[in-house]
């Protein structure tokens, strides 16, 4: 049953978090996850609905002295069409391109995708590669209060984050990757459109004097949260890319993922695909870096 008693359309972050502070509120932006969850009875509206679509300061992509900032209300289409990101951070654009369908991309926001905290959330993967931080804002002691948190510490379980009830995810920030940074995004599924990942994998790193540095591996749909595969990263860090390193990485990643059996795939298949994808990611990386060199 829809039992919304109050509806607000704040036009600033300050206004939004003051409303949030009053409690019992549901935030809606694109609504592409919220609406089906409500429809399915998996979630209920709180008594207050706050539509944050008019908070313009939460929208847009900017770069300030080597630091990228993407507003929480930026849509997946905005990311897909950003020439800045296409030039500087193509892996983000690639993930956006794999995201749902054009209609959903037009409405779905970055903050929504992160706060939904699906282990299969597509946008989480490239942002984990970029060591992104989330900006969480609340209203404390009659003023706006901001805290920043590494994205990898933001997720705590399927659909669960450390976001407090009075907090709003206003933006995502990350530093410009170091020179030579190369990243890839892969996603599986029996059909390309509107696919929930069986496994999604992001890989990033730099090739320095023939050895791998700054290895980042992020995997979707293989654990309760989008996973940073730190053990596998360590296996590869400082290694030259030979068959033995690749084989060890495959073994490590298959050890590190903790998938479940569900209606989409078995744990066995997700583990298998993780191995396939790390091998492909490394081949891609090798191809790109060889080309660059």
């Amino acid at each position: 049953m829809i039992n919304i008693e109050n509806y607000h359309r704040p036009s600033s972050i300050s206004e939004a978090v003051q409303l949030l502070q009053q409690g019992e509120a549901t935030i809606v932006a694109g609504g592409t996850d919220l609406t089906p969850q409500i429809e399915a009875g998996a979630r209920q509206f709180e008594s207050t609905l706050i539509n944050i679509q008019r908070v313009e300061e939460m929208r847009g992509i900017s770069v300030t002295s080597g630091r990228y900032r993407i507003g929480g209300l930026t849509t997946v289409t905005d990311i897909l069409e950003s020439t800045t990101l296409a030039a500087d951070i193509p892996v983000l654009v690639e993930a956006a391109d794999h995201f749902a369908s054009p209609q959903i991309r037009n409405a779905a926001t970055l903050a929504g995708n992160l706060c939904n905290a699906s282990p299969a959330g597509d946008m989480c993967i490239p942002l984990l590669l970029l060591d992104a931080q989330v900006e969480l804002v609340s209203w404390i002691d009659e003023s706006v209060s901001t805290r920043r948190l590494a994205l990898c510490d933001f997720f705590i379980g399927p659909g669960k984050t450390v976001l407090q009830k009075n907090e709003l995810l206003t933006a995502v920030e990350f530093k410009q990757p170091v020179a030579g940074f190369s990243a890839s995004f892969q996603k599986s599924g029996p059909r390309p459109a509107l696919e929930i990942s069986t496994v999604a994998m992001g890989f990033a790193g730099v090739l320095e004097a023939g050895v791998l540095r700054g290895v980042r591996i992020a995997i979707g749909a293989v654990a309760p949260t989008p996973l940073r595969a730190t053990a596998t990263e360590l296996v590869l860090e400082g290694r030259s890319l030979n068959e033995s390193a690749i084989a060890q990485a495959v073994e490590a990643v298959q050890e590190e993922v903790k998938p479940i059996d569900d209606v989409r795939a078995s744990a066995w298949y997700r583990t298998h695909l993780s191995g396939v994808y790390i091998r492909r990611a490394l081949a891609l990386f090798q191809g790109v870096t060889a080309h660059a060199a």
Partner: peptide, 28 residues
């Protein structure tokens, strides 16, 4: 041939939605 199956376990339908019941779309 490739993707559709209404998954039924213990008499209950596990995938009663277009997200998990996969009809072919244009690209494939």
């Amino acid at each position: 041939a490739l993707s559709e199956q209404l998954q039924i376990k213990d008499g209950k339908v596990l995938n009663p939605n277009f997200r998990d019941y996969k009809v072919p779309t244009a690209p494939e």
